[in-house]
Amino acid sequence: MSRADIIVIGGGIAGVSAAAELARGGAEVVLLEGEPQLGYHSTGRSAAIFIRNYGNATLRALNAAAEPIFEAPGDICDGPLLSPRGELLIASEDEMPELEAYLDGSTGIERLSGAEAAEIVPILRPERIAGAMIEHGAQGIDVDRMLQGYARFLRGHGGQIITGAPVGEIRHDGALWQVETPLDTFTAPIVVNAAGAWADEVAGRAGVARVGLQPLRRSAAIIPEPEGYDCADWPVFGSIAETWYAKPEAGKLMISPADEDPVDPHDAWADDMVLAEGLHRFEQAVTVPVTRVEHSWAGLRSFVADRTPVAGFAPGKPGFFWLAGQGGYGVQTAPALSRLTAALVLGHTPELAPEVIVALSPERFAT
């Protein structure tokens, strides 16, 4: 039986970054990951884009707190984790209310006409665009360097990362949590549940009330770069209604149907029909056909009902900390949520505003 101050369950970017920040605060941390490697599920399948205005008001506050850390990660990584990209969203006449809703409360966004949008991404059909917007400040994220940087920092501050250790039974004896894995039983007064799509299952094993986490599948495919075009400097572009989006990727285009199909937690794969429908929507918006799909995959984006992450101690369960429900915002909010986790667990004053902390708290489900 191995003893630690804190057990973190989940080796995605949320768990690894939180474990690193907890270790920074002097805690003895053990991180448990069921897969053979870190970042195997959602983290490793991320679209890898930082969008300041993406999400509701709480998420935008997290984005704002995370951005300076991405720009200057300090002892996590050498140099910025962001690179120029931009995001361009288009709307049909019927989708204009969604465009206006997105712009409400946004900063750093420029409105565009259909013709102006097509000047930036020349395969777009301007006649189908009633309105558009571009966020020049949206940037690409070097996810692997970020994940490895946090993991390296964690190990360098005495933390343990144990992979191939799926969590089994979880018990609480009033003072300590006991987490069983095939490798060992680990004990600590605090457990951080950063298990991604499996977070509700982990809570159930611990006798903690679930928060209604729903994994949603999102598919993606790589297609060849459109013939006659160099898309390297194009922004991410897509429909404001999130019916498809595209991102330049190493001389090719990644296309996603932006699907959100409810599924059980599993090692996700793309549904061919869903992918075909998304590619068709993409083709309707552009002047070039999709000639072939070179590769496809899927990941899971897990949300609770209000689509806001859950971060805080479970009511009535001493030492059980939620860090879940990041949906499609997990990578870009990780720097902020990891620091919040460390502050709340270690009893420090959080950097985030009180109303943001309340909005994230699992206490909202108790009422």
Rank of each mutant, 00 (worst) to 15 (best):
A232G: 06
L32W: 00
G86T: 04
G79K: 03
D267T: 03
T349F: 09
E227W: 08
L176G: 07
A334P: 05
A305Y: 05
W177V: 04
N56L: 12
L213F: 06
R218P: 02
L340W: 01
L275G: 00
A314P: 03
E355R: 14
T43F: 01
G25R: 15
T58I: 01
S2E: 15
P354T: 15
R128V: 11
G149E: 03
G26M: 11
A311S: 14
F321M: 06
P289E: 11
M1V: 14
P265I: 11
M1Q: 14
V310L: 08
H348E: 15
R205G: 05
D78T: 06
F282T: 05
Y102H: 12
L279S: 07
I141D: 00
A23N: 01
L22A: 07
E116I: 08
G44F: 01
D272K: 03
P84Q: 09
V304F: 03
V8K: 01
T349P: 01
V30D: 02
A61F: 00
Q37F: 10
L147T: 11
P318A: 15
G114H: 05
L216S: 13
V358A: 13
G319S: 11
A366G: 14
G34W: 00
G168P: 04
S92I: 13
D75M: 07
H136V: 13
G168C: 07
A314T: 12
P166G: 02
H280V: 14
A343H: 02
G159E: 09
L340M: 04
G212W: 05
G174A: 05
T291D: 10
E87I: 07
L22Q: 07
T185W: 13
P80G: 12
Q160N: 14
V331F: 02
V191P: 00
H172F: 15
G158C: 05
A314S: 05
T181G: 03
Q160W: 07
G11L: 02
L154G: 02
P126M: 07
A258D: 13
N63L: 10
I69G: 05
E87A: 15
G114Q: 06
R339C: 01
G325Y: 03
L88Q: 03
Y40K: 13
A130W: 10
G207W: 03
R210W: 13
T163V: 07
R85G: 11
V30H: 03
Q326C: 10
L82M: 08
I9S: 00
V29C: 08
L81N: 04
T163W: 14
V208F: 03
A285R: 00
P80S: 15
G131M: 06
A314Q: 03
G299M: 06
P350S: 11
E283K: 00
L253P: 02
Y329D: 10
R281I: 04
L176F: 08
P248N: 09
Q332C: 05
D259M: 12
I6Y: 01
Y245C: 02
L176D: 08
R339D: 04
G174V: 10
A175M: 15
M133G: 12
P318S: 12
T367H: 04
H41S: 07
A209S: 08
Y102C: 06
T43V: 09
L216Q: 04
A132H: 08
I7P: 00
E35M: 10
